[in-house]
């Protein structure tokens, strides 16, 4: 049993943490339990949004904003976009696995990650108490501190990640275009998924 009173948590922090934490878990359950893919995607938005609330509760406002803009605002919207375009928004047959032995392996993976998290947490429980690593004395300070650590200490991983992302984008474009490169046809047409002809 976690003794919540033992940690230094103010009442508003605790309430925010409990509500947002419940929303995170409910959303995560919704992603795997909902039958309709669009509902699953929406549950994921709920989880991402609640994580953003947890960030704000920790005074990490910039992270919260980026969380919503990037994940909820761009990535899940793209998921929805694909679901709508491809018309897979119907109930899937969940009786048979797509890959053989998919479910036992998934359970195993979950178990491994869970044990790993328990080991890493090492008895430190989240309770909504404010983190004391970063000082939040002056406004905007967490943005400055983030920027300094990204562009000094972690410059190489940061740049490497951006290169990786560009490779992924280029790869996706190459994969999409290759199948439609026939002579006498405008090569630009193949990637033009946004145009109206793509929808029809």
């Amino acid at each position: 049993m976690i003794d919540l009173l033992a940690v230094q948590t103010s009442m508003p922090d605790l309430i925010t943490f409990l509500i947002a934490g419940c929303a995170v878990i409910l959303g995560a359950l919704g992603v795997i339990l909902m039958k309709n893919p669009v509902h699953s995607a929406l549950s994921m938005v709920m989880t991402l949004f609640a994580v953003a609330v947890l960030f704000i509760e920790q005074d990490a406002q910039f992270l919260a904003a980026v969380q919503v803009i990037v994940y909820a605002g761009a990535i899940v919207v793209l998921f929805l976009f694909v679901i709508m375009l491809l018309g897979v928004d119907k109930q899937e047959n969940l009786a048979k696995d797509q890959l053989r032995g998919q479910r036992p392996l998934a359970f195993l993976a979950v178990l491994v990650i869970f044990v790993e998290i328990l080991a890493l947490s090492n008895g430190n429980w989240t309770s909504g108490a404010k983190a004391t690593v970063l000082s939040t004395s002056s406004p905007g300070s967490n943005i400055v501190q983030l920027a300094q650590s990204i562009f000094t200490t972690y410059l190489l991983p940061f740049e490497a990640t951006s290169v990786l992302l560009i490779i992924a984008v280029v790869g996706a474009v190459v994969l999409v275009r290759r199948s439609d490169l026939k002579p006498g046809r405008d090569p630009g047409e193949a990637i033009d998924l946004d145009s109206e002809s793509g929808i029809k």
Binding site: Q61, F62, A65, V66, V68, I69, A72, G73, A74
Partner: peptide, 8 residues
């Protein structure tokens, strides 16, 4: 940024 959040 809040405006960008809300517009997304």
């Amino acid at each position: 940024l809040f405006m960008l959040v809300m517009s997304s």
